Simulated assay, not measured.
Amino acid sequence: MLVRIVKMSFEASKIELFLKNFHKNKQHIRNFEGCKLLELNQDINNPSIFFTYSYWESEKHLNNYRNSVLFKEVWNNTKIYFNQKPEAWSVSKIESLP
Rank of each mutant, 00 (worst) to 15 (best):
N31V: 01
E73I: 08
K79E: 11
N63T: 10
K20E: 15
F50V: 01
I44W: 03
F71G: 06
V91R: 02
E39P: 00
Q84P: 00
T78Q: 08
K14W: 12
L17V: 05
V91I: 04
L40Q: 04
S48V: 03
T52Q: 08
K20A: 15
K20L: 10
K14A: 15
A88H: 02
V74A: 09
N64I: 10
L2F: 14
I15M: 11
A12E: 15
S96Y: 10
K72E: 13
V6M: 12
E33K: 14
E57Y: 05
P98I: 13
L38R: 08
Y53T: 04
F22E: 06
I94K: 02
I15P: 02
H28L: 15
H61M: 13
F71D: 05
E39S: 10
K14F: 14
S92Q: 10
K14M: 15
S68Y: 05
E57Q: 11
I49V: 15
N41P: 00
K7Q: 14
Q27G: 02
Q42S: 07
Y53R: 06
C35W: 10
G34H: 09
K24F: 09
S96R: 02
W56D: 10
Q42G: 02
Y55W: 09
N83A: 03
E33W: 04
E87D: 03
N67Q: 11
F50W: 02
F82L: 08
L17K: 14
K79S: 10
K85W: 00
W89R: 01
S90N: 13
L37G: 09
L97V: 14
F10A: 11
I49Y: 01
L19T: 09
N76L: 09
P98S: 13
K72Q: 11
Q42I: 09
I94E: 04
I44E: 01
E39G: 03
S96Q: 10
N67C: 03
K36F: 05
E11Q: 12
L37N: 15
T52C: 05
Q84S: 08
I44G: 00
F82P: 00
L37T: 07
R30H: 11
E87H: 00
K7C: 07
H28D: 15
P47F: 03
V3M: 13
A88I: 02
H61Y: 11
N41W: 07
L70N: 06
N77L: 12
Q84K: 08
W75L: 03
F22D: 07
V6P: 07
L2G: 00
K7W: 07
S9P: 00
E95V: 02
Y81R: 07
P98W: 11
W75A: 12
E16A: 13
K24Y: 04
V3Q: 14
L17E: 15
W56C: 06
P86S: 01
I80M: 13
N31H: 13
